[in-house]
C-alpha cells in the first residue's frame, strides 16, 4: 500500500462519506419535523370534529345565544379550510377565542352545566387542547433542532447544496396559559 493510495482513500472519505453522513442526519431531522407536524394535525382534526356536537348540545339549552354559536361554526369552517401554516395558526387562534366565549356563555345555564353530554365534551375539548399544546411544543422543539442544523457549520453547506429550507414554527396562543374553564364535574 502506497502513501498515495492512503491519501486517495482519505480524500474519497472526506468528499463522499462525510457529506453522505451529514446529508442523512439532515434528512432524519426533516422527517422528525414532519412526524411532529402530523401529531398536531391529528389533534386539530379531532378538535374540529368535536365542535358540531358541542354546538348542538349548547343549542338545546341556550337558544338565545345564536350569535355565539354561529361564530364558533364559522371559525371552525375557516380553520378547516386553512391551507398554510400561518393561516392555520391565525384561524385556530380565532377558533380558540370563540370557544372561550361559548364556555363563558355556558356558565349562565345551570342545566347545561349539569348535562353529562356537555361535561364529556368539555373534558374531551380540554384534553384535545392540551394535546395540541404538547404537540406544538414537541413540533417547535424539533423545528428548532432542524433549523439550527441547517444554519450551522458544517451542515449548512450540505443544506444549501440540496435545498433544505427552514421550517416555520407553529405559534398559537397557549391555551394552557389561559385555559378553558377547568373542568369541574
Amino acid at each position: 500500500m502506497s502513501i498515495t493510495f492512503i491519501t486517495l482513500l482519505l480524500i474519497a472519505f472526506f468528499l463522499l462519506i462525510v457529506p453522505a453522513i451529514l446529508y442523512n442526519s439532515l434528512v432524519r431531522l426533516r422527517v422528525r419535523v414532519k412526524t411532529a407536524w402530523s401529531q398536531i394535525d391529528v389533534q386539530l382534526k379531532r378538535r374540529h370534529d368535536l365542535i358540531p356536537n358541542l354546538v348542538e348540545t349548547v343549542r338545546g339549552y341556550a337558544k338565545h345565544e345564536r350569535e355565539t354559536l354561529e361564530n364558533v361554526t364559522k371559525a371552525r369552517i375557516q380553520a378547516i379550510n386553512a391551507t398554510n401554516l400561518r393561516e392555520k395558526a391565525s384561524s385556530e387562534n380565532i377558533l380558540t377565542g370563540t370557544l372561550r366565549s361559548l364556555f363563558a356563555v355556558a356558565e349562565n345555564y345551570p342545566d347545561l352545566k349539569a348535562n353529562q353530554n356537555f361535561l364529556n365534551l368539555q373534558e374531551e375539548l380540554t384534553t384535545t387542547e392540551n394535546k395540541i399544546a404538547f404537540a406544538r411544543q414537541f413540533y417547535n422543539d424539533e423545528v428548532m433542532r432542524y433549523n439550527t442544523a441547517i444554519q450551522t457549520i458544517p451542515r449548512n453547506i450540505i443544506a444549501r447544496m440540496f435545498t433544505f429550507t427552514e421550517s416555520d414554527f407553529f405559534e398559537l396562543e397557549d391555551p394552557r396559559e389561559k385555559a378553558l374553564p377547568e373542568v369541574k364535574f
Binding site: Q39, Q43, E123, T126, T127, N130, F134, A135, Q137, F138
Partner: peptide
C-alpha cells in the same frame, strides 16, 4: 377517564 386523558396528553408531549 381523567387519568387516561392526561396519560394521552403526556404521550403526545413525548412525541408519541
Amino acid at each position: 377517564l381523567l387519568f387516561k386523558n392526561i396519560v394521552d396528553e403526556v404521550s403526545v408531549a413525548t412525541g408519541g
